[in-house]
Design a protein around this nucleic acid. Structure first.
Length: 564
RNA sequence: GCCGAUGUAGUUUAGUGGUAAAACAAACCCUUGGUAAGGGUUAGAGUGCGGGUUCGAUUCCCGCCGUCGGCUCCA
């Protein structure tokens, strides 16, 4: 199915939604209603009326009734004056009309049945025939024009398809996806937990989650050592003045926790590791022979996230980054950037993550940044040169830069199709200047290094959340906290099972015996639900032949294997 | 933070204006079993917290807290 036609169906369905809402709630002011990735929405100002999910049914019914009279979409071109007359009671549409006029575009209206909407077009031809399989899904708040200073509107989400089968499939897929949601699976598998007594967004890594994290950390240390990184440890707090030098205090303060007083001086909990790594760079005079200097640390940083933004392990208030700051000569930035990128690709491959995209985060006029225009353009150029050297595809995104420089991010979808920023590489000409970092080049000239900030996985909290969903809880052998569970068929074989268990442990396998007084079927069921990769069944036959019967978590029976 | 929903044993859920029901998990007993749930017994919550309405609230109302779906924001 052509996505464009599906979008047209969904956008048409959004018109229908608006028409039904106006029919039931005449005081409502409709605003915008686009097609989106998996459906459509319409943002509506219901004024004092409260809309809840229980109202969706009757809106759907009204839509079904109205669509019968919609034989097509009629395009009408109008003057500014006419448009403003038609929408005189709708301040949102009036605002849109002004914008269209200021862009010197034509004002187009589309009429279907009795309903007229300001719209640039893109509808299906026969709504009464094609809009049949749709469903309103949820209600949410959304700020007018996406700006939190504006009024919050009511957003109604829905989806539509050309066939009942496609619609049912989509709804079914969505239900399936909810089952592998890391928030649910992560708790079930004992990976993490959230205790209200601890505080919002502060997660506790349960033993199996901690195990997985440790394995990932081991991988990081091993791979980074190979690539010339030097690992350090730095404190979780530091003097406020340090953060004033770095610019965090001015531009990142709303993400930082309140200062604490120690010996009559103010200290802050770190939201980033940068300043500490700067100090390590500065601790001794540097020569070009020392560069690139790659200071790395797996470190937890603390950031204030708004309560409503928190989400399981994906969005928390303390994040553990696989962080590093690379100090290099300006002429080596592209090489370093590509080196980091190759490492990032290597990690994605190891974890089997194939579905992701790259986003180039640039400044937007709305936000505040450090430094001047020239230096930003230079940094952006370096990134683009590096990306193009490798021929990578990426999207440009204004407003996604760090406050000290542009960056390239890896964006990965979670089970429910939401996008999350994971790995990141950032080019920074700013902090070396603010911290007055220097090195001596081969002509004995003092030069300033360029800084790359990079975290190829992003944060371990988010990364493990992504992995839980990616593997559907069935972690690969190297990450699985328990690799083998030994199931004696009856208590008579417990001793023999224990011997096998010891043998496996001696050989470096993570095994355990389930000696519960339960049936084999039940033990298999429980171990399979825990996603344990291999089950070993021990009964009379195995003891006699000194063999083991092996079954996988997928249900394959590998038969009887020799022990040696 | 904002909009909406929601909060009942460890977990998943039921239920009612008259002081809570079940399954799974747990403990114990019987059973000693061959590839996704064997049977029984027992214990376990006063219904997120604080107010209010009421003779009486888990149920209705208000506030707070947590969680979920969005918005904004972000690793």
């Amino acid at each position: 199915m052509d996505n464009k036609i599906l979008d047209q169906l969904r956008h048409s369905c959004a018109h229908l939604l608006a028409a039904a809402v106006l029919d039931i709630y005449p005081q409502a002011k409709i605003t915008l209603g686009p097609a989106i990735k998996n459906g459509f929405y319409y943002d509506i100002d219901f004024e004092d009326e409260k809309i809840s999910p229980s109202d969706l049914k009757k809106i759907e019914e009204k839509m079904k009734q109205i669509v019968k009279t919609w034989t097509g979409f009629k395009k009408i071109e109008v003057s500014e004056k006419e448009a403003k007359k038609i929408f005189k009671d709708n301040p949102y549409k009036l605002e849109l009309i002004d914008e269209i006029v200021s862009r010197k575009e034509k004002i187009t209206l589309y009429q279907s049945g009795d309903f007229i909407d300001l719209c640039r077009g893109g509808h299906i031809e026969k709504p009464n025939e094609n809009i049949k399989y749709f469903k309103l899904l949820s209600i949410a708040g959304a700020y007018w024009r996406g700006n939190e200073k504006n009024k919050m509107l009511t957003r109604i989400y829905g989806t539509a398809f050309f066939s009942k089968e496609d619609l049912d499939n989509y709804l079914k897929k969505y239900e399936e996806a909810k089952k592998i949601d890391h928030k649910k699976l992560g708790l079930q598998l004992g990976i993490y937990l959230l205790a209200p007594e601890v505080g919002s967004g502060l997660l506790l890594w349960a033993p199996d989650g901690a195990f997985i994290r440790r394995k990932i950390e081991e991988l990081i240390y091993k791979e980074q050592e190979k690539r010339g990184y030097l690992h350090v440890y730095t404190p979780h707090i530091g003097k406020k003045s340090l953060w004033q030098t770095s610019g965090h205090w001015d531009l990142y303060r709303d993400k930082m926790y309140s200062p604490m007083n120690i010996d009559e001086e103010e200290y802050l909990i770190k939201p980033m590791n940068c300043p500490f790594h700067m100090m390590i760079y500065k601790s001794t005079p540097r020569s070009y022979r020392d560069l690139p200097l790659r200071i790395a640390e797996i470190a937890t940083v603390y950031r204030y996230e708004k309560a409503g933004e928190l989400s399981g392990m994906l969005r928390v208030r303390h994040i553990t980054q696989d962080d590093s700051h690379i100090f290099c000569q300006e002429e080596k930035v592209i090489d370093e950037f590509l080196g980091v990128f190759e490492y990032m690709e290597y990690l994605l491959k190891i974890f089997g993550i194939k579905k992701y995209y790259l986003r180039l985060g640039l400044r937007s006029p709305k936000e505040k940044y450090l430094g001047n225009n020239e230096i930003w353009i230079k940094a952006e150029k370096e990134i683009v040169k590096a990306i193009e050297k490798r021929g990578l595809k990426y999207i440009r995104s204004e407003g996604d830069a760090a406050f000290y420089g542009p960056k390239l991010d890896v964006i990965i979808e979670d089970a429910l199709g939401r996008e999350w920023q994971c790995g990141t590489i950032q080019v920074d000409f700013m902090l070396p200047q603010r911290f007055n970092l220097e090195y001596v080049d081969k002509n004995n000239q003092i030069k300033r290094p360029v800084l790359l900030h990079r975290a190829p996985l992003g944060s371990l909290e988010r990364w493990v959340a992504i992995l839980i969903e990616h593997y559907k809880g069935a972690f690969p052998l190297w990450l699985a906290p328990k690799q083998v569970e030994i199931l004696p068929i009856s208590e008579k074989y417990n001793d023999h099972a224990k011997k096998i268990d010891n043998l496996l442990k001696e050989n470096g396998l993570r095994s355990m015996v389930n000696s519960e007084n339960e049936t084999l079927g039940k033990k298999i069921r429980n171990a399979t639900l825990k996603k344990i990769p291999y089950l070993i069944i021990i009964g009379e036959k195995e003891v006699e032949k000194n063999k083991i019967a092996v079954r996988t978590r997928k249900g394959e029976d590998l038969g009887q294997l020799e022990i040696n």
